[in-house]
Write a protein that binds this DNA or RNA. Structure first.
Lengths: 141, 141
DNA sequence: CGAGTATAAAACCATACGGTTAAATAACCA
DNA sequence: TGGTTATTTAACCGTATGGTTTTATACTCG
């Protein structure tokens, strides 16, 4: 599996995210990591293996302990990936704000009937025209 | 499942990330989404259901088409979550840099063995510093 | 109505996931 | 050596995932 996929997969479990949060405070043992959870130690051990395969933790050896250490570099790659979309969701919020302001302005001017707010269809259609990415632009091939 | 978990789970598949990348360019149909993949349409339909349950896409109705639209707000939550750890991985890089500089200084003084410089700095990290991406400018609701 | 198109749903299959308990390793200590 | 502690491995179980093919649904158009 590619690195990004295994990182996302590793993060898709609240137990594992809690483990990472704990490890952000410092290196610790499996036993200590297990304590907060209502879960057997082998279960935690499996979670640790998932985190390790994703490169999110490293494990040492110190007598009979296998201390876990957070290695956050894959998180930087997650950040890189998601930042690709930042403009998108910020722009969306901007448009929502603009839309709400327009609604408010319209309501102030001519308060007769509320728009059906089917901004769904019309807005989407318009956006497609703008970007030139019509759904069925391509017919059968 | 909690929102963050299902978002991460949805992102843990390269097909679904490719679908998101396509949808970032604009709304489109299931058929068009399927074309780039060596995969049946029901398979893509299932992926879309996963993305929809995670709130990453919305689906319209337009005749027999069910156009898909990216709704990137969950990505903002992913960003918020991962930014918690930014200081951690940047500090780690800082320490690595310091360590490498120290190695270099030591080597200059007493040059006996070469250091294994695996200095892989994240370009995105830099970029973020430059652009001053107001990562956490937005508070939580 | 009936034919065609776009999509979803059903049934199925193999594999992975997240958990369990019980047994095996590995290191320390007396 | 044997006993204790920390952790992993093995075997198992129920459910979810990602894919398939086949069937059903919903809509348009002639």
């Amino acid at each position: 599996m590619d690195a990004l996929s295994s990182t996302f997969a590793a993060l898709a479990d609240p137990t594992r995210r809690a483990i990472l949060a704990r490890l952000a405070l410092g290196e610790t043992s499996v036993t200590e990591l297990t304590e907060p959870f209502e879960m057997s130690m082998p279960a935690v051990s499996k979670h640790l293996k998932v985190l390790e395969r994703a490169g999110l933790i490293e494990r040492g050896r110190e007598a009979q302990w296998r201390p876990c250490k957070l290695t956050p570099q894959p998180l930087a790659e997650v950040s890189d990936w998601v930042e690709q979309y930042r403009e998108l969701w910020e722009r969306r919020l901007d448009r929502l704000e603009a839309y709400l302001q327009k609604l408010q302005a319209d309501a102030a001017n001519k308060p007769r009937r509320a728009a059906k707010t089917g901004a769904k269809t019309s807005a989407a259609t318009r956006k497609n025209k703008e970007t030139g990415h019509g759904r069925h632009a391509r017919g059968k091939k």
